[in-house]
Amino acid sequence: MTAPQRLTDRKRESIVQAAIAEFRDNGFEVTSMDRIAARAEVSKRTVYNHFPSKEELFSEMLHRLWATSAAQADAAYRPGVALRDQLRELLDSKMKTLGDPNFIDLARVAIGATIHSPDRAQTWVNRLNEREETFTVWVRGAQQDGRLKAVEPGFAASQIHALLKAFAFWPQVTLNKPLLTAEEQVTVVNSALDLFLCWYEIPAACPA
Results as ranks from 00 to 15, higher is better:
Arg6Gly: 04
Asp92Phe: 04
Arg140Gly: 13
Thr68Tyr: 08
Arg131Pro: 04
Phe135Cys: 07
Glu29Tyr: 05
Asp85Leu: 02
Val151His: 07
Phe169Trp: 14
Phe103Gln: 09
Ala156His: 01
Asp194Tyr: 00
Ala37Lys: 01
Glu55Val: 06
Val137Ala: 12
Phe103Tyr: 15
Thr187Ile: 08
Pro118Glu: 09
Ala70Ser: 14
Leu7Met: 13
Ala71Thr: 05
Asn129Ala: 14
Ala208Thr: 06
Glu132Trp: 07
Pro203Ala: 02
Phe135Asp: 11
Gly146Met: 15
Asp92Asn: 13
Asp92Arg: 10
Asp9Trp: 07
Leu91Cys: 02
Ala38Thr: 05
Glu133Met: 14
Asp9Thr: 12
Phe167Glu: 15
Ser32Val: 09
Arg88Ser: 06
Leu128Ser: 15
Leu90Val: 09
Glu152Gly: 03
Ala75Lys: 13
Ser191His: 10
Phe28Asp: 03
Leu57Asn: 00
Lys96Ile: 09
Glu55Phe: 05
Pro153Lys: 02
Val173His: 03
Thr174His: 15
Asp105Arg: 11
Glu56Pro: 00
Ala19Ile: 01
Ile160Gln: 01
Asp9Leu: 13
Trp199Lys: 10
Phe23Arg: 01
Ala204Lys: 07
Leu91Val: 06
Glu130Phe: 11
Phe169Tyr: 15
Lys96Gln: 14
Leu163Trp: 04
Gln159Phe: 13
Thr187Glu: 12
Glu29Phe: 11
Leu90Phe: 08
Leu148Ala: 01
Asp100Gln: 02
Gln144Asp: 14
Asn190Cys: 07
Ser14Trp: 06
Glu41Phe: 06
Trp170Val: 09
Ile20Met: 12
Arg24Asn: 10
Asp145Gly: 05
Leu148Met: 08
Val139His: 00
Val186Thr: 13
Pro203Glu: 03
Glu183Thr: 12
Ala156Val: 05
Leu197Phe: 01
Val47Lys: 00
Ile115Glu: 11
Tyr48Gly: 08
Phe103Pro: 02
Asn129Val: 05
Glu184Pro: 04
Asp74Val: 02
Phe196Leu: 00
Ala67Ile: 02
Met1Pro: 09
Glu89Asp: 11
Ala162Ile: 13
Ser158Met: 15
Thr31Val: 06
Arg108Pro: 03
Arg108Val: 06
Leu148His: 00
Leu7Arg: 14
Lys149Pro: 01
Ser32Leu: 12
Ala40Val: 02
Lys94Ser: 13
